[in-house]
Design a protein around this nucleic acid. Structure first.
Lengths: 206, 206, 206, 206
DNA sequence: GATGAATGAGGCTTCATTCAT
DNA sequence: TATGAATGAAGCCTCATTCAT
C-alpha cells in the first residue's frame, strides 16, 4: 500500500527534524547538560513522542553522531574516488573533510568536544561503532596512500603511520579553525597540509 | 611555627591523594558518571571531607586537569631547552610528550575523552584556563620552529601552521596508541614523526 | 477548547491540595524542619511532582503564606465595607479577624511562629510581599479610623497610632487564644477589644 | 582556692562574648542560616571550643534568648516597683520596655522574627521556658493592674484581658518602630500608649 | 499516534558535632 | 584545655523515562 510508504517518509522527516535540533543542542551544551525536554521542544514534539523515534537519550545521541559521520565519510570517499591522480586524491581527501567541517561547524564542535567517550556504560556500544567507522575511514586513507607507494610517488613507509599523520594534521587544522573564530576559510589551509605532508618542513637538502 | 608547616604538608599530601584517585575515576567514567561519593571512598575520605580540599566537584575536576597538564607542559619545556640543536629540540619535544603519555595513560584518556568541554556553564572558566595553557604550549612550539627558520634549517613558512601540524601528528599518534592497546612503546613512533614532519612523504624529487 | 480548561482546573485542585498539606506541615514543624518529601507524601504526590507546581520549597512556602493572607485580608475588608456605622465597622474588623483565626488555627500558628523572616537571602522577596500586604491592611484600618475621626466619633489623634493600637490588642488576644488551648471561642473577646479600645481602662473620671 | 574563682570568672566572660556575637549573627540571619562556625569565628574561638560552653547550637540559642529576656524582665520589674503611683507604674512598665527595645534593637529583631518556635523537637523545651518567663511577666503586669482596680483607679474588668491589651499595644508599637527605620525615639510613643489604654479613643461622652 | 504530567532514584552539597592531637 | 579536620546523615532538586488519556 502507498499509505505505508507515506507513513515511513513522514516518519523519517520527523526523525530528521529531531536529529537536526538535537545536533544543535548537544553541540551547544554537551550530552549531559542537554535536556530531552529541550530537544523535544525545539523539534516541536512532546517529550513522549521522541521515544517513538529513539529508545533513549543515549541512542538519540549515538544515532545523530554516527549517521552524520557516515554522511561525511561517504561524501569524502565519493569525492576521492573520482580523482585519478594520487596527489589529487590526497588533496581532495583533505579538502572535502575541510568542506564538511565548514558546513557543519556545530556538529564538529560536538565531535571535538568528545563526550561520546563519557557516556556511562552504554558508551561501549558507541565507542565501538565510532571506532569501526573511523577505522574504515583510516583504512580508506591508508589505501590511497598505499596506492601512492605502489605507484612510486610516496616513500616506502608504514602506510598506517602515514595515514595517521595526514589525519593528525588535518584534524589539528580543523580544530584550530573551529576554536579560533576567524574570517578565513578552512580551504585556504589545504596547501599547507599538502606541502607539509608531502615535502616536510626541512629547508633544502631535498 | 613548624606546626603550620607540617599541617600544610599533610594537607597537600591528602589533596594529592584525592587528585590521584579522582584522576582514575574520572578517566574511567567521565565527569558526569563519576560520583563524588566514589572519589571520596577511593581516597579514604568521607564525602564531606572532599569539600575541605575542593569547593565543588567541578573545581576538583578542573584542578586535577590543569595541575597535571601544567606538570606536563613544564616538563616538556624543561627537556627541550636543554638541547642546543634545533632538530634535537623538536625531537625532544615530541619524545617528552610521548613519555608523558606513556606514564599517564589514564590521565591522557580523560583528556582525549574531552568532557572538559561539557561542563555546564562553569566550564567557561576551565575552557579559558586550558586554552591559555595550551596556547602557551603552542607558542613555545612555535618559538622553537621560528628559531629553526631563523637558523636556516626550516622552510620559511608560517610557524603557527607548522607548529599546528607537528602537534597534530604527535597527538594523532598518541591517540592511536592510547586507543589501540598494543605492546609497543610510543617512543618507537618518534622517528616517524620526525621523518614525516621534516622530510614529508613524497619519494625522491628531494 | 474545554480540555485546557479542565486541565487548568485540575491543576489548581492539585496545587491547592499541596498548599493545604504544606500549611499543616509547615505549621507543625516550621519551614526548616519541614521536608519537601514529607509535604509531597502528605499530598499524595512524588517529590518531583511538587516541582511542577512550585519552583522551590521556598516559593511553595511563600505562595502558601501570601495566598492565604490575601484571602484573610479581603474577607475582612469585604465584611467591613458592608457596615454603615463606624463603631460597627471596627467591631466587624476585629470580629472577622478573630473568625479567620478560629477557622485557620494552624495557619495562624505559622504566622505567629514567624519563620517567614528567617528564609535565607531569598526571603527578601517574601518580606516585601508580606509587608506590602500588611501595609495595605493597616491602611485600610487607618482609613476606617480616619472616617471615625471625621464624623466626630473618635478623638483627634494620629490614626496611624490608633490603628497600630487596635491591631496590637487584636493580635495579642489572638496569640493568647492560640497558645493557650481553651474551650472558649475567640469571638467572646470582641467586647473586650471594643471596650478597651474605645473607652480605655480608667474607671470613672470620664 | 582563688584559682577556681578566677577560672569561673574567665569562663563567664568568654561565655558572654560568645552570647554577644551569637546574638548579632542570629539576629542577622535567623537560627537556621547562622552557622556555628561563623559564631565561633566571630567570638574568636575554635568551633570545638563553643561546645565547652554550650552543648549544642540549639542550647546556645536558647541560652542567649532566655538570659537576655530575663534581664529585660527583671529590669522592667525593678523600675516598676520603685513607683508608688499606679498610673506611674503602668507608664514605667511601658517606658522601660521601650527603653530595652531601643537599646537592644538586634536582639528584639530576633524575637520578633520568632524562629524560637521553629526549633525541631527540642523547641518544646524553649517554648516552655519562654512561656514560663512570659507568663511571669504577664502576671506581674496583671498584678499591677489588679492593684489599680483595687485602688479604684481602673475599671473592674478581667485583669488578664487588660494586661494582654496593654502588652499588645506596647508590642505593636515596638514592632512598628523596629521594622520602620525612623529617626524618632520609641519613648515618644509612651503617651500614646497611656492615652489609648487609659482613656480609649472615643471622643467625648467621657 | 501523540501528549506531557507523574515518577523517584540519585546526585551534590551543607553543617552540627566529635575527637585525636 | 583548645583546636579544627573529619564525619556522614539528610536535604533539595533534576531529569530520563513511562503511561494513562
Amino acid at each position: 500500500m502507498v499509505k505505508a510508504e507515506r507513513r515511513e517518509r513522514e516518519f523519517n522527516l520527523r526523525r530528521a527534524e529531531i536529529l537536526e535540533q538535537a545536533e544543535k543542542i548537544f553541540a551547544a551544551k554537551g550530552f549531559y547538560n542537554a535536556a530531552v525536554a529541550e530537544i523535544a521542544g525545539a523539534s516541536g514534539f512532546a517529550v513522549g513522542s521522541l521515544y517513538q523515534f529513539f529508545p533513549s537519550k543515549e541512542q538519540l545521541y549515538i544515532s545523530m553522531l554516527t549517521e552524520k559521520l557516515n554522511t561525511m565519510y561517504s561524501s569524502i570517499r565519493e569525492s576521492v574516488v573520482k580523482q585519478a591522480d594520487i596527489i589529487k586524491k590526497i588533496e581532495v581527501l583533505v579538502a572535502s573533510q575541510f568542506r564538511f567541517v565548514e558546513n557543519n561547524t556545530e556538529f564538529c564542535c560536538i565531535f571535538i568536544r568528545g563526550d561520546h567517550l563519557s557516556l556511562s556504560e552504554g558508551s561501549v556500544e558507541l565507542r565501538k561503532r565510532l571506532k569501526v567507522d573511523y577505522d574504515i575511514h583510516i583504512s580508506f586513507t591508508e589505501e590511497v596512500i598505499r596506492e601512492g607507494i605502489r605507484t612510486g610517488l610516496l616513500k616506502k613507509m608504514d602506510p598506517c603511520m602515514m595515514a595517521a599523520a595526514l589525519t593528525g594534521i588535518t584534524n589539528s587544522y580543523a580544530s584550530r579553525w573551529l576554536t579560533t573564530v576567524e574570517g578565513t576559510s578552512l580551504m585556504n589551509y589545504v596547501p599547507f597540509v599538502m606541502d607539509i605532508f608531502l615535502e616536510g618542513v626541512r629547508k633544502d637538502a631535498k
